[in-house]
Structure formats: structure tokens, C-alpha cells
Simulated assay, not measured.
Amino acid sequence: MRRDPRLEIITEAVERLVPGATPAFMTVTVTETLPGTSNPDGTPHRHEWSGKPEDLGTRVFTALYGRPRAEETLSPLAQAEDAKRARDIVGEVGILMSAGSGLWSAPWYPARPGDLVHVAYEQAGATPAVGETYIVGDAGDGLMSLQLLAVSPGRPPEQEQFSGPYATEAADCPLYGLWFEAGPHRLTVVRDGRPVHIGGAR
């Protein structure tokens, strides 16, 4: 299970109020100072709320969308296939049309040359868990490439031919295939040495 991506975006926006801060060490304080009142020591009378960025993000999310709920860790493609199997054409079309919305609305989008993208695949039967790391490059004319850098140990030799399926020489959005087919919950995006998207966990 993973959190709603809209809640992640709101929380990350709060965390970025202090550039370069470590979210685990951050707190948010909202203060109301009441005019014409004072405490016995002469200081203005105040009401105050304090909490973590995630607490504030959850309050904003709840006001906009209702209480957050965990979502299944399925890629947009897998969700669309589930809807198709259920003969839910409206749901299938809706999923396909909004498949990239979480990517396009991410505060770190679009991808930049030098971004590292890691995709983690879970163990499936006898096939062990494996990860692939890609790098985004400048392909010229406003396009970007996605090149396979490394595959973590564990992939059987007979499956090596399937490595790097998302590599591309030139694309407007080189991460869309990964986002749509593998799913955002399997992706970690690192920019300038800092993770800007961590799939499946915060």
C-alpha cells in the first residue's frame, strides 16, 4: 500500500518552504496573535498550532479531498487492465487519460539531464527482485534520452536480454513509460544527489 500521490505533493510543498531542509527535522508552526490582549508577563496573547510537515499536509488534503486513504501499489497500466477485466470501460478510459497526471503535477517534473532513475522490481515466483538504474541525458532539440546505467545483481543470465526496456534515444518525457508501466511506487528519482521522488515510501 502507498499514500495518495496528492498528499505526497502537498507535503513535499510544505517541506520545500525551507530550501535544503531535512524533512525529518522540520516542524511547522502557525501562530495567531490576538490584538489588544496580553499575558500576565506583558507578551501578546497567542494561539498556536505546531506539527510536522506531514501533519499540515494531511490537514490540507483532508480539507480538499476528504480523509486520505492508502492506495494499492499498482501501476496505471495494471489499474487499467484491472478495469478492462471488470468490463469497466469508463474506469479504464479514466485511468488511461489521467495516467500521467501524478508525474506531470510532481514538483520536480520535468526530468532534467543528469537525473538518475531507479526502478525496483519485486520478486516474482522464481525470478528474484532486481533493480535497474537509468540516467536522463540531453538528446538535443528539446528532447531527452534515457540510458540504462546498471542492473543490480540477481537477474538470471537468460533474462539479461530483457534489461533496459525503458531506454530511449529521444523523447519529450523519457520517464512516462516507467511511470505508466512499472508504476510510480517502484521509482526513485535522484536529482543533484538528492532524492526528489521515493516510490513506495516517504
Rank of each mutant, 00 (worst) to 15 (best):
V30I: 11
P5A: 06
G100E: 05
P19K: 08
G131L: 13
P113Q: 13
E160T: 11
R85P: 00
G200H: 00
L175P: 00
V14C: 09
G91V: 02
V119W: 06
D82Y: 00
D172L: 15
A86E: 04
A21L: 10
P68C: 03
G42L: 14
D172Q: 13
V189M: 01
V14E: 03
V18D: 14
P5F: 09
R87I: 04
L103C: 03
A201C: 07
T168C: 12
T188V: 07
K52F: 02
G57P: 02
T62D: 04
E160V: 11
Y134I: 13
A182I: 01
P107K: 09
Q161Y: 11
Q147G: 09
L175S: 03
P68Q: 06
L178V: 07
Y176D: 03
L7P: 02
G94H: 00
G125R: 13
P128A: 11
K84W: 00
Q123D: 13
T29D: 06
L56F: 02
E54K: 08
S145G: 12
R16Y: 04
L143P: 04
R46V: 09
G131W: 09
E32H: 15
E71M: 05
V14T: 11
S163Q: 10
G91K: 02
P68V: 03
A83R: 01
A139M: 15
H197K: 05
M1F: 15
G36M: 15
R87P: 00
W108D: 02
T58M: 08
L74Q: 01
I198L: 10
A170P: 01
S101R: 10
S38R: 07
P174N: 06
A129R: 11
G125V: 15
A171R: 04
R46Q: 10
A139L: 15
A124P: 05
G100F: 02
D82C: 03
R2L: 07
E8L: 12
E15N: 07
W104I: 13
G177C: 04
D55Y: 04
G125W: 12
T37N: 11
G66S: 03
R46C: 12
W179Q: 00
P110S: 14
T37D: 05
E132A: 15
P53C: 05
A83K: 01
G131A: 10
Q79E: 13
A99Q: 08
A80W: 00
A83T: 01
V90C: 01
E72I: 01
G140D: 13
P184N: 07
E132S: 10
E169Y: 06
G140L: 08
K84G: 00
G20W: 14
A171F: 04
L187I: 04
R194F: 03
Q147M: 14
V130D: 10
V28F: 13
L149C: 15
Y121H: 14
Q161D: 14
D4L: 08
Q123V: 14
E132H: 14
T127R: 15
P44S: 13
W49I: 02
V93R: 08
S98C: 04
V60C: 03
G114T: 10
A63T: 07
S75Y: 01
L149H: 09
D55G: 05
